[in-house]
């Protein structure tokens, strides 16, 4: 039982750590490298592209990965318990 909780917690912390690192480093990037604040791609400034568009698919993919792994942990647990 505690192994189930532990592996779920590890997964959760990994996802939070991952997204936290990505999201958290964005303001830091803007802070440390002011050039990125005005850098433009196709006429759109980089911050607008990142915050207005790119973050959403990233977050969605993170969620999909999390759900897949969490369900796999549960399936394995269910099979393991079922065998006992």
């Amino acid at each position: 039982m505690s192994s189930l909780i532990q592996s779920q917690l590890r997964l959760t912390l990994a996802v939070i750590g991952g997204t936290g690192l990505i999201l958290g480093s964005i303001p830091l990037l803007f802070w440390l490298a002011p050039a990125t604040r005005t850098f433009a791609i196709f006429g759109l400034p980089l911050p607008w592209i990142i915050l207005g568009i790119v973050v959403y698919p990233v977050v969605y993919v993170a969620a999909r990965i999390y759900v897949r792994k969490a369900e796999r942990i549960e399936t394995e647990f269910t099979e393991f318990v079922g065998r006992q």
Binding site: T12, I16, T19, L23, V55, V59, A63, V67
Partner: peptide, 10 residues
């Protein structure tokens, strides 16, 4: 939006 990711994993 990210609030729901946290809600999801936690």
């Amino acid at each position: 939006t990210v609030g729901y990711l946290m809600l999801l994993v936690l």
